[in-house]
Design a protein around this nucleic acid. Structure first.
Lengths: 277, 277
DNA sequence: GAGTGGTCTAGACCACTGT
DNA sequence: CAGTGGTCTAGACCACTCC
């Protein structure tokens, strides 16, 4: 009653050597023979042990690295990867942010949504923002329902824990330029971090959000993303597109967010209505 | 006004050869010199072109494959990867499923949540289900708030488009065994696919769901997952934990869902309450 | 059978880490 | 400077695809 799905870890006899070795090492790690954080035997030792050439060992270890099971460090050794501490990113942040829009400037200034999610206060976080203008490509034009080439305000955000080098996320946010320009303050990166966040920014130009739609996919990082987020081989990213829709039905802001998969948990709660018994 | 973020594709002079070659090929693909679906030059041709040995070319192409940009096919060539058609998975499925619980058996039999998401009808989908029992590990025990070792009903689901070999998702679902046993029909895989889905199953034992929490991360697939979902190198999966909470506050069902990142978009909509102006 | 990618060897030399 | 991983060569042979 349980067989079909389990018998997959078949021992491929006469399998390729690197597979055999990778399987063996993987099993040893799973069995706890090498614990997270531990260094596994050197390539030289493995070479002797398995009686194969150096490139074959490298290939085998490379497979485990691509799986995210181990991490090679030049000059130091190869280590069993520890699960990274996860940072939550909840969708409740949006309602929370909306509720704060009507608070006083002072109250808004105290905390932002990222602090709320990470549980850190503002002093532990460092913000970076840069603004420029771009012209809508076909993709963005379709989402905003404007014609291709429409001028958009493009805002780039990086948020970083002061204790770490790599940012927590890479965010590219877009707003139709003419809409944002209704409040000239919104065109200047100098005003970031804006107390109250994007929803308050939109409020200053008379926009109230009705709902936010988020579309998530997973993929390997691009070279740029891997560098910026300091991701090693064997990790993936969550690519999230956030679409903010105003009470008028217009799409007013679109953000492309890239989150490191090994340290982020995106959380969504779907509240269900009661049956009326 | 746009420089900081763009200047990252620096040409590393004297870079490693495989990096230089990978960069060059990547640029050519980006520039449209090789279109999605096209075959790129053979390794032999590249070897001659770049004047390096075979393993170096293989390494360079391997980098692009890990990025998901190309896909190697033994005996055929190396091809620029086409974006896969995406299947949406919306959280609205849960309210939809709940609304259907009280419909007649006949009405429920017509469609399930997966058909709704994929836009296919039941005849195009093939279901597989297997049940067994497991004892709660620390992780599951914590989520269910029961003691470690508690007996759980473990249900494995695979749903597949009949026109394809690979399933759309891998699902491992858990329910506390004693709870499920209140309706003996729920212990038999033969009753799957159950008209109305899990929420109707729970309804037969007097359980109404209050909300569903979903936690998403991204990571490279395990070897098993890659085989089952037929994922090639350079893809990631969305690992989703779905936690169903009853109106009593109890966690009644937990599912671990693995979705292929290159073909799945998970969609969540956060409805915001209006400001009362 | 020709074309193309996959595995493997044996060994040279380079580059980073830590003592 | 010793230890360890990273890059690269030159070439042999295997395995899959397609004509």
């Amino acid at each position: 009653m349980d067989s079909q799905q389990q018998t997959r870890t078949v021992v491929h006899k006469l399998a390729k050597q690197y597979e055999r070795i990778a399987d063996d090492l993987r099993a040893k790690i799973r069995a706890g023979e090498h614990l997270p954080g531990d260094r596994i035997p050197t390539e030289d030792a493995l070479k002797t042990h398995y009686k194969v050439s150096a490139p074959t060992i490298r290939h085998a270890v490379g497979v485990l690295e691509a799986e995210g099971l181990v991490q090679r460090q030049h000059g130091r050794g190869t280590f069993v990867r520890k699960p990274r501490a996860k940072v939550q990113r909840t969708a409740e942040r949006y309602q929370w942010e909306k509720d704060r829009v009507k608070l006083s400037d002072e109250e808004r200034r105290t905390t932002g949504a990222t602090e709320r999610d990470t549980g850190r206060d503002m002093s532990a976080l460092e913000f970076y923002a840069a603004y420029d203008s771009v012209f809508a490509n076909a993709d963005l034009a379709a989402v905003f329902d404007v014609s291709e080439g429409t001028k958009l305000l493009h805002r780039v955000y990086r948020t970083r824990l002061k204790t770490e080098d790599a940012p927590l996320s890479l965010i590219d946010s877009y707003i139709v330029h003419d809409v944002a320009a209704r409040n000239p303050d919104l065109l200047l990166a100098d005003n970031e971090p804006w107390p109250g966040g994007t929803q308050h920014q939109l409020y200053t130009i008379g926009i109230e959000l009705d709902h936010i739609r988020e579309e998530l996919t997973a993929r390997p990082p691009t070279v740029d993303e891997a560098q910026q987020l300091e991701l090693s081989a064997g990790t993936a990213v969550i690519a999230l597109r956030k679409i903010s829709v105003a009470t008028t039905g217009d799409v007013v802001e679109v953000s492309d967010v890239v989150l490191p998969g090994d340290r982020t948990v995106a959380v969504y709660t779907t509240q269900l209505t009661r049956w009326d018994d």
